[in-house]
Simulated scan of single mutants.
Amino acid sequence: MTYEKETLKQLRISLDEEDDETSIIPILENHHKYLKEYISILMNSETPAKDKQATATLFFPIFNMHAKAEEEVFYSTLQDSTNKEVRMEGLHGKDEHEIAYELVDELKQMGAEVSWSEEIDSKMRVLTSLLKNHLKEEEQVMFPMAEKIIPESKLMDLTDEYLDRCKIYLDMAMEDTPSEVSRSDVITFFY
């Protein structure tokens, strides 16, 4: 089994171990911590191209897993709010995800999972800058707003649904994962 599939497999196991007796917010924040580690590797001009390529190959399915599950569970809850500001935060977050998905698709079409170039590096910097700011905004604006507006019991109910969706998207990613990655020191998610 490749390192990438092993890493995704380890992530899948760790999702089963997540504390589903807590609000969705700390779970999302925990997932953000690891996404930020990948982002820092991809943004670092000192990171060798082969390491960026290996990191991108892991980052794409993990970002997709997190973002899709977050949209379907958390953002949809925000969008159902009677509070206009909360609804707008949910819509804004989904719009930023859509831009990120487009950039990921472009990077895949450019071959970011099999080679690295200055053009790929430049587009990756755009993606990672967008996501870095997006995560910051979620943590500083969206999450505190949600905690004020959405009852704690509802936020706790969302946890199971979010984790279940993460598992579905990760299982799909593991079926479609390229097998070329063999880098043993890429940061593993959730560890």
Rank of each mutant, 00 (worst) to 15 (best):
M1P: 15
M1C: 12
Y3M: 14
Y3H: 13
E6W: 13
E6G: 13
T7C: 14
K9R: 12
I13L: 14
I13M: 14
S14T: 12
D16G: 15
E17P: 03
E17M: 13
D19N: 15
D20P: 02
E21W: 07
I24C: 03
I25F: 00
L28A: 07
N30D: 03
H31A: 05
H31N: 03
Y34W: 10
K36F: 08
E37R: 11
Y38G: 11
S40I: 04
I41Y: 10
M43W: 04
M43A: 11
N44L: 15
S45D: 14
E46A: 14
T47K: 13
P48Q: 10
P48K: 10
A49I: 13
K50Q: 11
K52R: 15
T55D: 11
T55A: 12
A56F: 15
T57W: 12
L58K: 11
F60M: 08
I62V: 14
I62K: 08
I62P: 03
F63H: 05
A69G: 10
A69W: 11
A69P: 10
E72I: 03
F74S: 02
S76Y: 04
S76F: 02
L78N: 01
L78F: 01
L78V: 05
T82A: 13
T82H: 09
N83T: 05
E85D: 03
E85C: 02
V86F: 01
R87C: 08
M88W: 04
E89I: 01
L91I: 01
K94T: 09
D95I: 02
D95Y: 07
D95G: 00
E96V: 08
H97Q: 09
I99S: 03
I99H: 02
I99F: 03
Y101C: 00
E102Q: 00
E102A: 02
E106W: 04
L107A: 02
L107I: 04
K108V: 00
K108T: 00
Q109D: 04
G111C: 11
E113W: 05
V114L: 10
V114C: 10
S115F: 12
E118R: 13
E118S: 14
E119W: 04
I120V: 08
D121K: 12
K123G: 05
M124S: 09
M124E: 04
V126W: 01
N133M: 11
H134A: 14
L135H: 10
L135P: 08
K136Y: 10
E147F: 02
E147M: 15
K148C: 06
I149T: 06
I149D: 02
S153P: 08
L155Y: 01
L155N: 06
L155H: 05
M156H: 08
M156L: 07
M156F: 03
L158G: 00
D160F: 07
E161I: 06
E161C: 05
E161H: 05
Y162D: 06
R165Y: 04
K167A: 09
Y169P: 02
M172N: 10
A173W: 06
E175M: 05
E175L: 11
D176E: 12
D176N: 07
T177K: 07
R183N: 15
D185G: 11
Y191I: 14
